[in-house]
Simulated assay, not measured.
Amino acid sequence: MAETDSVAVYGYHPPLPKGMTARQAEAATAKSRSHYENVSPAAATLYRGEGPSSVNGKDVPEGGCLGETRRKVGLGDTTRLDATFNKVNLQASQQASNDPRVSSLNKRWADCMKESGYHYADPLAAAGDPAWTEGEGGDGSQDSDSAGTPKPREITVASTDVRCKQRVDYVRVRSGVEAEYQNKLIEQNATALSADRDTWKAAIAKANELMAKRG
């Protein structure tokens, strides 16, 4: 589905999985919410290892069930493992946002949106308008319902957004500028990123091995 076709149906919401109806998606969302709501505080703390040191006479492993699983697949501190990647990703995005080429691009996109009466500083502000998600909690928003189905205004804004991006060649220019910064940061952090990649690959292989043994 082309982007213009997608926003005409889903607005700023992600498209449904192939073959899934809106009613099925709503049921799946409700089931997921119900699952997490039914997890007791005791079970949650046991999972993270933040509760008692033993349960029913059995010692709780350090870090709980999550900590034990990470050790079994060879993962230690995943926060540390993700730190370099997150730093590169965030810095590249920030540097691109401050680049004059992107600043100019945002202005041209915003000017295009104003022609249709919409006032946003940049595409992120448009996509992140609280109006698109407030209704999902059932508070009566006029722009999305309790299932997250977009209403006409969201679809109109999103469709205008796409047309303005096409007019100013937004995606190609913005992604090109950000890629420049990403490549520089990747080169500067190549050793750490390679090590983290190898750790994650080994952990996935170990997880697959353990799952295979369980049948």
Rank of each mutant, 00 (worst) to 15 (best):
residue 160 T to W: 00
residue 4 T to G: 09
residue 135 G to S: 14
residue 211 M to Y: 05
residue 93 S to L: 03
residue 112 C to A: 11
residue 188 Q to T: 12
residue 161 D to W: 10
residue 188 Q to C: 09
residue 165 K to F: 03
residue 124 L to Y: 01
residue 62 E to Q: 15
residue 93 S to P: 03
residue 131 A to P: 11
residue 126 A to Y: 07
residue 35 H to W: 09
residue 47 Y to P: 11
residue 6 S to H: 05
residue 66 L to D: 06
residue 76 G to M: 05
residue 30 A to Q: 14
residue 105 L to G: 02
residue 17 P to V: 10
residue 143 D to L: 07
residue 75 L to M: 07
residue 173 V to D: 01
residue 186 I to F: 07
residue 72 K to A: 10
residue 53 S to R: 06
residue 9 V to Q: 01
residue 21 T to P: 14
residue 37 E to W: 00
residue 126 A to W: 00
residue 194 S to A: 11
residue 77 D to I: 10
residue 109 W to V: 05
residue 59 D to H: 07
residue 62 E to N: 14
residue 42 A to G: 08
residue 123 P to E: 00
residue 139 D to N: 15
residue 136 E to W: 07
residue 73 V to E: 04
residue 72 K to R: 10
residue 132 W to V: 10
residue 205 A to P: 01
residue 147 A to L: 11
residue 118 Y to H: 08
residue 13 H to M: 13
residue 161 D to M: 12
residue 203 A to H: 04
residue 66 L to I: 06
residue 55 V to I: 09
residue 55 V to R: 07
residue 126 A to S: 10
residue 53 S to N: 09
residue 13 H to I: 11
residue 170 Y to G: 05
residue 188 Q to D: 07
residue 174 R to W: 02
residue 34 S to P: 05
residue 8 A to V: 04
residue 99 D to N: 02
residue 14 P to K: 06
residue 62 E to G: 15
residue 46 L to I: 05
residue 175 S to V: 01
residue 3 E to C: 08
residue 108 R to C: 00
residue 123 P to H: 08
residue 18 K to R: 14
residue 85 F to S: 10
residue 16 L to A: 14
residue 13 H to A: 10
residue 203 A to S: 12
residue 23 R to F: 10
residue 77 D to H: 09
residue 144 S to A: 14
residue 42 A to D: 11
residue 181 Y to M: 03
residue 210 L to C: 00
